[in-house]
């Protein structure tokens, strides 16, 4: 579990982006961070991964301040998939092997590391493209390749920044399905995304950020029902049921 306690943060020379933000990313749950552009969602992920130091407050990784972890030790706990380099000429397997970086002694891949990489490629559903170069992959395959890296890293928490942007709808569903599987294994999954429909469909917990604060957190159904989503995005959100399955419908606020 990753816990952010009373975090304030500002990039050098800029106005504070976060003030007194507290939240928990829990094990076995898919948490989706939602909010307008520039509200600090991606920064929150980078803070949670220990890449940025908050100006005040504490970030706890399994109860221990993340600042006390050595970088390699933290890397065994938390994987961050931010901006993905899609132009590299490395192969998918070579990319996944990078996930073993925190574990390697003298830079060598041991048999155990190779086994982990194979398993990660398999689980991410990208094993048959293992020898292809990253620069030749489709958007969905690219996400899978990087998820394989995070799995090879064997991190208990995987933080993803807009993993479904630029994907077609079936690839979006596939990636979200894969993330649900990782949750079911007991991993902490936190995702920043703009697709409200996907968030409502797949998230266990939504966190709504605005103005550097966590406005509200709760299950998709609760936040849709209590009007939080409508207030944050200025839209109407309606749940419906068809053939026993719930679906979500959206409309601009002013239209009835």
């Amino acid at each position: 579990m990753i816990e952010l306690q009373n975090i304030s943060f500002a990039y050098p020379g800029e106005l504070p982006l976060m003030q007194g933000l507290s939240c928990r990313l829990r094990r076995g749950r898919l948490t989706v961070l939602l909010g307008p552009n520039g509200c600090g969602k991606s920064t929150l992920l980078r803070l949670a991964a220990g890449l940025l130091r908050p100006s005040t407050g504490e970030i706890l990784l399994d109860g221990r301040p993340i600042s006390q972890y050595k970088p390699r030790e933290a890397a065994k706990q938390v994987a961050l998939l931010g901006q993905l380099n899609n132009r590299t000429e490395l192969t998918v397997r070579q990319l996944a092997e990078m996930g073993r970086y925190p574990y390697r002694v003298w830079g060598r891949l041991r048999a155990e590391d190779k086994l982990r990489v194979d398993m990660a490629l398999e689980q991410a559903g990208i094993a048959r493209c293992a020898e292809r170069r990253i620069s030749t992959l489709s958007g969905g395959q690219l996400q899978r390749a990087y998820i394989a890296l995070a799995l090879a890293q064997d991190a208990a928490a995987v933080l993803l920044d807009e993993p479904t942007a630029w994907l077609d709808i079936s690839a979006r569903f596939e990636i979200m399905g894969l993330l649900l599987q990782l949750c079911a294994e007991g991993r902490t999954i936190a995702v920043v995304m703009h697709e409200l429909d996907l968030a409502l469909e797949f998230a266990d917990e939504l966190m709504l950020l605005d103005g550097g604060r966590l406005q509200v957190t709760g299950s998709p159904a609760d936040l849709a029902a209590d009007g939080s989503l409508e207030r944050l995005f200025g839209i109407r959100v309606q749940a419906g049921t068809a053939e026993g399955r719930r679906f979500w419908a959206f409309a601009p606020a002013e239209r009835q």
Partner: peptide, 18 residues
């Protein structure tokens, strides 16, 4: 090997413990 990691981007390299 370090260059390989860095070529993925600074955030990626840092989050892998480099």
């Amino acid at each position: 090997r370090e260059l390989n990691l860095l070529s993925l981007g600074v955030d990626m390299a840092s989050s892998l413990g480099q």
